[in-house]
Design a protein around this nucleic acid. Sequence first.
DNA 1: CGGCATCCCGAAGGATACTG
DNA 2: CAGTATCCTTCGGGATGCCG
Lengths: 132, 132
Amino acid sequence: MTGKTFAPAPPEPLPRDLFDPDCLPNPVPIRFSEKWAWLVLRCLEPGPRRFSELRVPLHWVTPKVLTETLRSLERDGLLTRTEFQEHPPRVEYELTTLGHSLFGPMDAVCGWARENLGRLLAAREAHPAPSK
Amino acid sequence: MTGKTFAPAPPEPLPRDLFDPDCLPNPVPIRFSEKWAWLVLRCLEPGPRRFSELRVPLHWVTPKVLTETLRSLERDGLLTRTEFQEHPPRVEYELTTLGHSLFGPMDAVCGWARENLGRLLAAREAHPAPSK
DNA sequence: CGGCATCCCGAAGGATACTG
DNA sequence: CAGTATCCTTCGGGATGCCG
């Protein structure tokens, strides 16, 4: 065990601090990494929406994935799911206060994107799948 | 178009607007979805770092993945990679102005996380892997 | 030192079909 | 209408090992 090049099996089992907002295992950055969460929240910004109403702007998301996304957002208290006992069934999704409060930081990111997307894409152009 | 329940094979092949900062295929939100990009940028915030220096705080990231992350950030013009012709070889990574400008919005998100992580985790507690 | 080349695996995500 | 159930593909990421 002297020849090992790297990390001789460090005792610590990845002590990443869940409460460090910078740390990726932190649920918040993770939230942004969920593929559709971002857009789903946006679609709910104007007000409550039904499942099928959400499917229109998100028609390229399969119902399964949409459901999963909605449930995970519900688990984190960002939106509520209300089931009306009617026929045909009806379910409404609505942002919580917590959910709404996310738009602040989200807008900051979107603002950055709006301003710098051009540079970013230009940089991509400039790096033409390099040497390889 | 009467019998089909949903989208009778809509002609549009997913017309997600790459230039809409809200849209997930947009490179900016995507950037946050890359598992380590966020942390790598943070590690470079104080100043230029060598590959091996980055490996210390990110010791649970394999060199391969770290390289991939760095390259993708380089492609987008968020950092630069400088190779010094020395022996042994030496490479430094440094944030660009564009890269630095990302901390504004990132801090907004982190601030949100700092304030609301508790509620978020509490909400998770309250939803005990529901009915199923 | 700072990588890249390979091989590999598990989980995320997609397509399709079917129900309460 | 609002999902669930299944099945299948993709691919991010990990574990070596080699090279300039």
